[in-house]
Design a protein around this nucleic acid. Structure first.
Lengths: 123, 123
DNA sequence: CAGTATCCTTTTAGATACTG
DNA sequence: CAGTATCTAAAAGGATACTG
């Protein structure tokens, strides 16, 4: 259980910026949150493990599990296990997770507006 | 010059979210941008290398240089070198960099509002 | 003042195979 | 279906010493 995570923040007022970033950084966390916010059916809807995999074709099982667990331990996502066969596990945003919506929206908006990656491509 | 950077994005619409994140992730980039946005004297103001170091007591010279160079090569920050002795180098936001303001603001606002780090601490 | 250069440790992520 | 377990590679970050 080498769950270190969250390198100590040692900034001063910009601290809050880094603190928020630490929660959503990780190769797949942004997309996971985005899908939960934007695509989970009906408000407060959930997505299942394989639903994520379909939306993120290149994530490995290991990484998806990792990222979901970290989001869970940061209190952003809730994991519900149904004792059925075959097993069913649902992920949904917590209140805290849903409160990140403006942040995710801002990230998405900027990415869309700036065609990302390449400065030269900017209209 | 192993300037790899920017792991290939393979999400689908959440892609824009990841793309934006890639530009501001890196242990010190958020704070650097924050300081340039919030504290650089007068609009379009600049900060010098050691001005950053004063604001971020725990950054090493190596990391500060790295992060600034990456921000530069992503077109977010401009670096001006004055041919003087002792040398003077100023960093300021580009247009593109300044356009990240809503994003940084959102990150800051969330961090401030949620006391960061600990879910339990949330009022 | 504003960096470089080296070396080294930690963290992150990917591949692959297996399971209740 | 929803994961574990193991092993490995690569990237990020830190410590320390030196310089135009």
């Amino acid at each position: 259980m080498a769950r270190t995570r969250h390198r100590s923040l040692d900034c001063s007022p910009g601290c809050a910026v880094e603190a928020t970033l630490q929660l959503i950084d990780g190769k797949w966390k942004g997309v996971i949150l985005y899908h939960l916010l934007a695509e989970a059916p009906e408000p407060e809807g959930a997505l299942r493990f394989n639903a994520f995999r379909r939306r993120m074709p290149n994530v490995t099982q290991r990484m998806l599990t990792n990222q979901l667990r970290e989001l869970e331990s940061d209190g952003l996502v809730h994991r519900t296990v149904y004792a059925e066969v075959p097993p069913r596990v649902e992920y949904r945003l917590t209140e805290r997770g849903r409160s990140l919506e403006p942040v995710i929206r801002a990230l998405k908006a900027w990415g869309d507006a700036h065609a990302a990656m390449a400065p030269e491509v900017a209209a």
